[in-house]
Amino acid sequence: MSRSEDIKTFLLKRRARLNPEDYGFSKNNRRVSGLRREEVAQLAAVSASWYTWLEQGRDISISPAALTRIAQVLRLTDIEQDYLNALVFGSGSSRRTHDEIPREVMAMVDALDPHPAFVRRENMDIVYWNNAAKTKIFDWSSIPVTDRNSLKLMFIQDDYRRRLNDWESAARHTIASFRAYYATGNHPAAFKSVVDDLMARSAEFRTLWDYHDVSKVGAGNKDIFDDKGQLRHYTYTSLEVENNPGMFVIFYCQRVLE
C-alpha cells in the first residue's frame, strides 16, 4: 500500500469506467475498456507522456490546474478529486495528532448514553465507547485491542457482521471512507497495518478493496440488530475533535420509521 501505487490504480480504474463514445471516440479496436491514456491526455490538454508518467505513479511536477482538468475528464466526484489531490500533493496538514483521548471527550461520550456513541481514529480504530454503544452496536471489549477497528469488524467478526441489516453496502461504504481518510491522514503506517492484516485474513476484503471506491460521508442512516436481536434504525453523525485532528466522535440517534 503506497501512494504511487494508489495513484496508478485509482486513475486506471476511473479511466476504464468511461465510455469512449461519450467523448466522441470510437469503441472499435480497443484492447481494454474505457478511454486510452492518450485520449485522457488530449482531453485534459496535457502531453501523453506526462499523463502516462502520472498514471504510473512517477515523481513528476504537477500543477493543481492540470490535475483538476484530468479530474474533470475522468468525471470524478468532489470526494474523489479531493482523494486524488491528497495522494498527489499530500494532505497539506502539519497538524499533530495526540494518542491520549481528552477527558472532556470521554465525558461527553458517556453523557450521550442512552444513545450509542464512541470515539474512532482516522484509521477507524475504536478507542472509547459508552454503554449504549456496547449493547446496541457492539461490545468491543470482547475482542483483542488490535481488532477494535470499524473496517476490520466488517470482515473478521461474524457477530458484528450479523448485526448489520445490509452488510455488503455497509462494507463497501466503510472501505470507500477508509480510502478517503488514508489519503488525507498523517499516519500512513496506521492505515497500512489495517490493510495488511485484512489482506491476509479476508478474501472478501481483497475483492472489495480492489474496486478502489472512494467516498466520505459524515452522516447517514444505518440499521443494526442490538444484543437482543431487535432491529434498530439509526441516524449517525461523525464529529472531529477540534484540538485532536484525526479523532472523531460517532453519535447514533435512533429514528422511528413511518
Rank of each mutant, 00 (worst) to 15 (best):
L208P: 03
D226N: 06
S26A: 08
R103C: 09
R206S: 12
L76D: 00
L76P: 05
L153T: 04
H98L: 11
G218A: 09
V214W: 07
V40Y: 04
W167T: 00
T97F: 08
E122I: 11
N123T: 07
I79E: 14
V214G: 10
N244A: 04
T77W: 08
F118A: 12
L43S: 01
G246Q: 03
G92S: 01
H233N: 12
S150E: 13
R30V: 02
D210L: 12
K228Q: 15
L151H: 04
S215K: 08
F25Q: 03
L208F: 13
F248A: 09
R36E: 01
H115Y: 10
E104K: 13
A132R: 05
S193G: 10
D196C: 11
D82Q: 15
N123F: 12
M124P: 06
A86Q: 01
L35H: 00
H233C: 10
M154I: 05
A117Q: 02
E38K: 02
T97Y: 07
S202T: 03
R161I: 01
I126Q: 09
Y211I: 12
R206T: 14
N123H: 14
G185N: 07
G185L: 01
R161H: 01
E258K: 13
L76V: 05
Y51S: 10
R75G: 05
E168K: 12
Y160P: 00
G57F: 04
S142G: 00
V40S: 03
Q230P: 01
R37E: 06
L12H: 13
L208R: 07
A107V: 09
F25G: 07
E38M: 03
S193H: 14
D197W: 09
K8H: 12
